[in-house]
């Protein structure tokens, strides 16, 4: 048992983070770990120790003792509070034997994790930031799409999205109107469903799972759940990391680093419907962590 000393563990009391399953990265990282030689991971301002227990299940200790931990979709998920308020999201495609799962690795990004998720939902930046792959000037128009909140799961669903993409994936060799569908399952977890190259009607899945280090630093983990069976893992990872590597400087230059949920700091357009819904959805949950708190206006 670990010694309990700090009066206040973790950098937030926001139940949206404390009572939530949060990822600390790929379960593969625990290979070779033990209670004597644990892996460390940072979450909500604290260092966690993780290892594989004698029963083969993951074990996690935080600054004040054991924490709930489980494995899901090949990643480790930790709850830093007493009870997770909601179950972990479901990703049925991840157990489809016709698909392969490719962990693209975590990449650190110096901004609020909420901004990373919001950027993931945004199609408007494709032709500017991802020119030559996910978009191409002058094809800048974001056609109307629908956004709703599923009354049962409380997930955000954006459907009917389409965008001209010169090279929509690592295996694409011609431009196409890519069909997209988004899910936001948790404040820091979203998934993108997009046309699978060479498989009419089928959709590949890209899941984004953000590990919040603190309010202004995160690690973005990306999982591919693909039908693709030609390219190597290295080729798929290379394509995906190039995309995120282009997003990273944009994200790190956004000010404020924390996401404003309302107010005059940022202006939205119709193409931002998914982002607007995401911010309202966060506000409805009383999200505080990683959120920009406006200072009171001068009298």
């Amino acid at each position: 048992m670990l010694c309990i000393t700090p009066a206040m563990a973790f950098c937030t009391d926001d139940p949206n983070m404390r009572n939530e399953w949060l990822t600390v990265g790929s379960a593969r990282n625990l290979h070779g770990s033990s209670a004597q030689r644990p892996q460390t991971a940072r979450l909500l301002g604290e260092n966690l120790a993780l290892w594989t227990g004698p029963d083969g299940l993951p074990v996690c200790h935080g600054p004040q003792g054991p924490l709930a931990v489980r494995q899901h979709c090949g990643y480790l998920w930790v709850c830093c509070g007493s009870t997770p308020t909601r179950p972990l999201f479901v990703l049925p495609e991840s157990t489809d034997p016709a698909r392969r799962l490719v962990d693209c690795g975590g990449i650190g990004v110096a901004t609020s994790g909420l901004r990373v998720v919001e950027n993931f939902l945004d199609m408007g930046h494709f032709p500017f930031v991802h020119a030559g792959t996910l978009g191409q000037l002058p094809h800048t128009e974001v056609l109307p799409y629908r956004v709703e909140i599923d009354p049962h799961s409380d997930e955000i669903l954006a459907t009917g999205c389409q965008f001209y993409q010169p090279r929509a994936s690592a295996s694409a060799d011609t431009g196409l109107m890519a069909q997209y569908r988004y899910r936001v399952m948790q404040p820091l977890c979203a998934a993108l469903y997009k046309s699978s190259p060479g498989r009419p009607g089928a959709q590949d899945v890209i899941a984004l799972m953000v590990q919040p280090l603190d309010e202004e630093n995160a690690i973005a983990h990306c999982l591919l759940v693909y039908f693709e069976d030609q390219l190597s893992d290295a080729a798929l990872i290379s394509f995906q990391q190039a995309i995120f590597g282009q997003d990273k400087p944009i994200l790190e230059n956004q000010r404020p680093r924390r996401l404003p949920l309302d107010g005059p700091l940022e202006t939205h357009m119709r193409c931002d419907l998914a982002s607007v819904t995401y911010r309202r959805w966060l506000k409805g949950r009383g999200m505080v962590f990683g959120v920009h708190a406006p200072t009171a206006a001068a009298p």
Partner: peptide, 10 residues
């Protein structure tokens, strides 16, 4: 020849 430097440490 793409090498999976991260996360695969190829």
């Amino acid at each position: 020849i793409p090498v999976d430097f991260h996360p695969g440490r190829e």
